[in-house]
């Protein structure tokens, strides 16, 4: 049973690696930020699969930090000063 979990985790990991191409070639920084967000979400998926497969339930806390990290990095990326909001 745990073999299936690790196999799906490998599939997700390969999908993340392919998504990294968008970070490298992405034409605008918004594309790169989007790819980083995909990385965070897929990383949570991999950790959720790895936690029962390795028998370490604390990995779900790491997944929680990943979720926070995606939100914080997007907020830091789109940050504006007050008064600069209108186009």
């Amino acid at each position: 049973m745990h073999e299936i979990l690790i196999a799906v985790a490998i599939i997700l990991l390969i999908s993340m690696s392919v998504g990294l191409i968008r970070i490298v070639i992405g034409p605008t920084p918004a594309d790169r930020m989007m790819a980083a967000q995909l990385l965070g979400t897929s990383g949570i998926g991999v950790l959720a699969l790895l936690a029962p497969a390795l028998g370490v339930p604390a990995l779900m806390d790491v997944a929680l930090i990943f979720a926070l990290l995606a939100a914080v990095s997007v907020a830091a990326f789109t940050r504006r000063r007050v008064g600069q909001d209108r186009p």
Partner: peptide
């Protein structure tokens, strides 16, 4: 319960982040 909360957090933050990125672009 932790997994459910994590999923809810991901949905909220993902929607907010995509909105922010789209508005910025």
């Amino acid at each position: 319960a932790k997994m459910l909360l994590l999923w809810l957090l991901i949905m909220a933050s993902g929607a907010t982040a995509s909105h922010l990125i789209a508005k910025r672009a």
